[in-house]
């Protein structure tokens, strides 16, 4: 009896100890990856990194200025296309469709598309746009990211809109306001914080995407501001540089990795902070 009891306690401590170790394992890898990105990336971050175009293979110096601007352009255009479309679709689910079949189907598909392989979206946009247009382009890259962003924005905006109580809608409708005004001026306002958080997370997510850009915006060693030309991005640059056999390029790839990781972590933390403000305020 007593032995049995001791064994139970022992099993308890061992099992809990393993759980603790798992958590430590997760944290260790996070810190390890972040440490390496920081240590290896920091030396690459000098003035030329931010201001110059890529140097030819094997040459010292050079930067990724065009890729930084390219990532920003691709992400901004994707946001401009994807966010309004996502918010409107989310509005339909929360304000009109609700429990209808169409709404349930859209909800289900969105949930799946959120985790669907992004590289397939790249192939899709390639077949749809790059082939017919005769080449890789900024537009194609942006479209691919917009498609990836769409389901994320739909689901978060719907969730946030649903948090606005029906009594608020009814109170506004009772004043004689048409429903679109109620939605735009009352419901959106109530859900604003949450929707901004959702959009920030969606933008952060797509700006770190590599696979869908490989066949859409491709790469460019020079500046490009045209919608129809190939465009460099930080992530594709990392891919190409890391796969190449040159030490200098590896260093720049780490620098780009640090830049994009830092950006994403800051946005993610900000979004969390912003979301927390909602629950208390």
């Amino acid at each position: 009896m007593n032995l049995h009891y001791l064994r139970r306690k022992l099993v308890n401590y061992v099992a809990l100890g393993i759980s603790l170790l798992s958590a430590v394992f997760g944290i260790v890898f996070l810190c390890w990856i972040l440490k390496d990105v920081l240590v290896l990336g920091l030396p690459a971050l000098n003035t030329s990194f931010f201001t110059e175009l890529p140097a030819p293979p094997g040459m010292e110096g050079g930067g990724v200025a065009n890729a930084i601007v390219g990532t920003i352009m691709i992400t901004v255009i994707a946001t401009v296309v994807g966010v309004p479309a996502g918010i409107l679709a989310g509005t339909y689910l929360s304000e009109f469709g609700r429990k209808s079949r169409v709404a349930s189907a859209v909800r289900f598909l969105s949930d799946i598309l959120v985790s669907a392989p992004s590289i397939v979206v790249g192939i899709f946009v390639y077949a749809l746009l790059v082939g017919p247009m005769g080449g890789f382009s900024l537009l194609a890259g942006s479209l691919a990211l917009a498609i990836i962003m769409l389901p994320v924005v739909i689901r978060t905006s719907e969730e946030m809109l649903k948090l606005v109580p029906d009594s608020t809608r009814e109170a506004a409708l009772a004043l004689g306001a048409p429903q679109w005004r109620v939605t735009v001026q009352v419901v959106y306002r109530g859900a604003l914080r949450g929707m901004v958080t959702g959009v920030m997370l969606a933008v952060a997510r797509v700006s770190g995407e590599t696979a869908p850009l490989l066949f859409t915006s491709f790469n460019n060693t020079f500046w490009n501001f045209s919608l129809t030309e190939p465009t460099a991005s930080l992530t594709v640059t990392i891919f190409n540089y890391a796969m190449a056999p040159y030490e200098e390029w590896h260093s720049i790839a780490w620098g780009a990795a640090l830049l994009i990781t830092a950006m994403l972590l800051v946005v993610t933390l900000l979004a969390r902070f912003f979301a927390r403000g909602r629950s208390t305020g």
Partner: peptide, 12 residues
């Protein structure tokens, strides 16, 4: 921290 691990891009 665990959620941040999820937000690091796969290329990293």
């Amino acid at each position: 921290a665990i959620e941040l691990l999820a937000s690091i891009p796969s290329i990293i």
